[in-house]
Nucleic acid binder design. Structure first.
Length: 284
DNA sequence: AAAATTTGACCTCC
DNA sequence: GGAGGTCAAATTTT
């Protein structure tokens, strides 16, 4: 059922992946040297552009061949991606009889970030999500243990995003963070809305949340006027995606918003009348 | 009391 | 059998 990507497509994905990889390396380097907001924003924008292009190529492209999420899986960090299969099998075997979980996981994007601890000596900065630590392992050849986190809302909202955090051997102030899967806790929240959920259907479970990296998709509100942006929210909000049954459909794109020092969940903005920008209709 | 973390056991893959 | 990933009971924190 897995249809191979054609040569040109694969080449394109490969080139974009390399571009994103280099941009992320540059960002890691810059963050260790106190970049200006404008520099950081520019890099965020570059990385988001690469990611969006990869998403379109892999999910919105030639139908459903839509293989595994080659895009974000991107091999950004070759040393971590090969294991994602283990997780699939782990989950399918012991969790449930379950199909749902394992299928989802096959589509889960994986990518790695390096975060400098300038944001906090005890660990990488908050990335906007709530994580629950569920394990820690000493890794062969690594000086520091690897910590395993899953979304706090795993049970309540069926959100299967996970991440692994490991202090870098080379630079102890840097944390290598590997994200696996995407947060669906926001989609679940939408699903609660009576208008959006039809009784008994499973649309929600088939949706793929493209909000796969709060850092990369975040929108800064500082200095944005120095960029040629009409609005700090000028990200595409819909993408054509395919789910595990290889059916295309629209999926919600829900970036976090970066306001001063905090990540803001757009769906909570209506609670804060002082938020300095108009809230896009989409989030209301 | 509830939520979060720790940590040894267990599972799967190679 | 070793390594990486996850579970789940015990413990700690809020």
């Amino acid at each position: 059922m897995e249809m191979a990507l054609n040569g040109e497509h694969m080449k394109l994905v490969d080139e974009l992946t390399q571009g994103m990889d280099k941009a992320m390396q540059l960002r890691s380097y810059l963050r260790s040297t106190s970049p200006s907001e404008a520099q950081d924003l520019l890099l965020q924008t570059i990385i988001s552009t690469f990611q969006n292009a990869l998403l379109v190529l892999n999910w919105g492209g030639p139908q459903s061949g839509a293989p595994t999420p080659a895009a974000p899986e991107t091999s950004l960090s070759p040393d971590v991606s090969p294991k994602s299969d283990d997780m699939n099998k782990d989950f399918s075997n012991r969790r449930d009889n379950g199909t749902d979980t394992s299928n989802k996981r096959k589509l889960q994007p994986t990518w790695t970030e390096q975060v400098s601890s300038e944001y906090g000596l005890e660990g990488p900065r908050d990335d906007g999500y709530n994580w629950r630590k569920y394990g820690q392992k000493d890794i062969l050849g690594a000086k520091h243990p690897r910590s395993y986190y899953r979304c706090t809302h795993r049970a309540a909202r069926d959100c299967f995003a996970t991440k692994q955090v490991q202090r870098s051997d080379d630079d102890p102030t840097v944390f290598d963070t590997t994200y696996k899967g995407t947060h669906t806790c926001h989609l679940s929240r939408n699903a609660i809305s009576p208008q959006k959920q039809e009784p008994g259907d499973n649309i929600q479970q088939n949706q793929i949340d493209l909000d796969f990296n709060t850092t990369n998709l975040g929108v800064y509100n500082e200095d944005f006027n120095t960029m040629d942006m009409q609005s700090p929210f000028s990200f595409p909000l819909k993408f054509l995606c395919s789910d595990e049954e290889n059916e295309n459909h629209m999926s919600t794109f829900s970036p976090f918003l970066y306001n001063q020092d905090t990540w803001v969940d757009p769906f909570d903005l209506d609670l804060d009348p002082d938020f300095p920008f108009d809230i896009p209709e989409f989030f209301r």
